[in-house]
Structure formats: structure tokens, C-alpha cells
Amino acid sequence: MGDDSIGGRLSEFIGNLGGFLRKFIFSVLSVGPIPNHIAFILDGNRRYAKKHNLKEGDGHRAGFVALLSMLKYCYELGVKYVTIYAFSIDNFNRRPDEVQYIMGLMHEKIEGMLKEESFVRSYGVRVHFLGDLKLLHQSVRIAAEKAMRVTANNTKFVLLICVAYTSTNETVHSVHQCFKEKRRPMDKFQEEEQQQQQQGLIKLVDLERNMYMALAPDPDILVRTSGETRLSNFLLWQTAFCYLYSPAKLWPEISLWNLVWSVLNFQRAYPYLLKTKMKRY
């Protein structure tokens, strides 16, 4: 028996053992409330590259590998929605060569989503790209639109990717949409009914319905790596009552144990979070 065969069997054994341990850990976690929606700020890719003397772009590639692992863990745990902050509107102010590289990497990975063996296809993931998509490079925008179209019928797991996004931009977008709705021509009956119900005013329900993130419930947990405790203009509206977790690890270093710890802390805080959320309504 060759070394390659032994090595292959050993890798398979370790993989099976890891899968068994995850199932055991997740079954224990399932005794408590499981978050329905987890959001991630993928912070630390560039610092990871610098820390390990890699090219700057290699940090983003390492971050993508970490993302795939985290998505798999969330799926196995039973988390229905995952949102990631992939690229802020403010990130367009970075060096042109860095922005160009990230756009190219994004296009490459979006195209990879559509392959048969990809995580998206294998796990039945529906993908949404949220943000001011017209700001993206044309090739990336076309690829994103294709990915959303191809995965539209998937229902097992929902991945929301915020690109060309900031929370303030999302709020302005929602106000504009609300204004357009209120300005639509109406027949006489609708106009009378609107006046009776005072629906000409923009209300909270109108704003929330027109948010980019109206596609999903508010996050239960927001994870930002690198030990940073800033939200950086991400989901400011939706995170009013969610649990915030800031592990010191850089994003490419995030592990299963960080996810487990975030869920345990969420479960411990759950009664208070639920109570404060109910007061909102």
C-alpha cells in the first residue's frame, strides 16, 4: 500500500472524525435556542497577509476559504440566514489596484458559486447580493445578477452578500422608495382610503419594507473579527437587539470554536434579548 493511499485514508478518517465531533457539539447546542440569522463582518484579511508575509491579495483568498468553512458550520447547525459584509461603499476609496483585485476575485468566486460541486449548488443555497449594485464593476454586477437568478428556487439556506453597501445608503434608498410609493397615481377610491388611514406619511413599516435587508429577519448575532467593536456602517438599523461578538482572531483565522462560543453567549443572553425585542413591538 503506497504512502498516498495511507495519507488519503488518514485524511478521510480525520474528516469523518471532525464531522462526528461537529454533530455532537451542534446537538448539545440545539438544547438551547439556535440563532436564525448570523451576520459577519469579515475583518482582518489584509492584516492576515501582512502577519504571514503574504501578498495582500492572498489574505482575501484565505478569507474566502474561511468563509466557506463558516457557511458550512452555520448550515450544519441549522442557521437559516447568513449575511456577510463583503465590500463597503467606502472601500471604493482604497487604492485602485486593490479595488480592481478585489473586484476580480469577487467575479471569480461568484462564477465558482454556479459550479455543480460548489457549496451553493450542493447545499441548496439561495444567494442575494444587497447594496447599490450599480457601483460594482460591470462584470461583477452581471455575475451577481446571474447568481441570484440561478439560485432563486433554492430554499434550504439563504446567503446575503452586502456589496457596495453601507447602512446609511440603505436607509436613504428606503426613504426614496417610500417616497416613490406615496407619489404613485391612485384612483379616487384609493386616494380617499389613504386620506382616511393617513397613509400619506412614511411610517416605520414602510421604511423596513423597503430596506435592502427586508429579505431576511434581523440578525440574532453579529460577529466582527479582529477584536474590533465598531459596526462600520453595517446593519445599523437591523442590529438594535442582536448579540455582538468580537473575537480577537483575524477573519482567515476564524474557527468552529468561535462560532460555538458566539452561540453559547447568545443563548445565555437570549432571555434579555427576547424581552427587549418584544418591547419594540
Rank of each mutant, 00 (worst) to 15 (best):
F157H: 02
L77G: 04
M70I: 08
Q100M: 15
N91P: 05
K50P: 01
S246I: 01
V127L: 05
R230C: 12
R224W: 07
V205Q: 15
S246H: 15
I34Q: 11
F119H: 02
A49L: 02
Y245Q: 05
A269I: 01
T276I: 15
L235V: 03
D97Y: 08
A240N: 08
K23E: 12
R126C: 07
N36M: 11
R268C: 00
M103P: 06
V65C: 06
F24S: 14
R230A: 10
K80S: 10
S232N: 10
E170W: 02
R95S: 15
G131W: 02
R126W: 03
G18N: 13
G32R: 01
Q238A: 06
G200V: 07
D58S: 08
D132V: 07
H37G: 10
K203Q: 14
M148R: 03
D43M: 04
E253I: 01
L244N: 07
R95E: 14
L256V: 04
G2L: 11
L250R: 02
V140K: 00
L136A: 02
R268I: 02
S30C: 14
V223L: 13
Q194P: 11
N53F: 08
A164M: 00
G18P: 09
K249M: 08
G200L: 14
N93L: 12
A216M: 09
T151R: 01
E193L: 13
W237H: 09
K279I: 06
E228Q: 13
L133P: 01
W261L: 13
Q267C: 01
V175N: 07
F26P: 05
K277N: 04
D97F: 07
M1D: 14
R183K: 10
T168Y: 12
P217L: 09
S30L: 12
Y281S: 13
H52K: 08
F129T: 03
A147R: 00
L222R: 11
S246R: 02
L130Q: 01
Y123R: 09
L77T: 03
R22E: 15
G7S: 15
Y73Q: 10
L244G: 02
P217V: 11
Q177K: 15
L236C: 05
A39E: 10
C178T: 04
G8Y: 12
W257S: 05
S226R: 06
L222N: 06
N45D: 05
L201W: 12
K146Q: 04
N36G: 11
W251A: 02
A248P: 07
R121T: 13
L259T: 02
S255R: 07
Y75H: 11
C74D: 03
R61T: 01
R47H: 04
K182N: 06
V82G: 01
H173E: 10
Q100C: 12
K72E: 14
D218R: 13
L231G: 08
Y123K: 14
A164D: 04
V99R: 03
K180N: 14
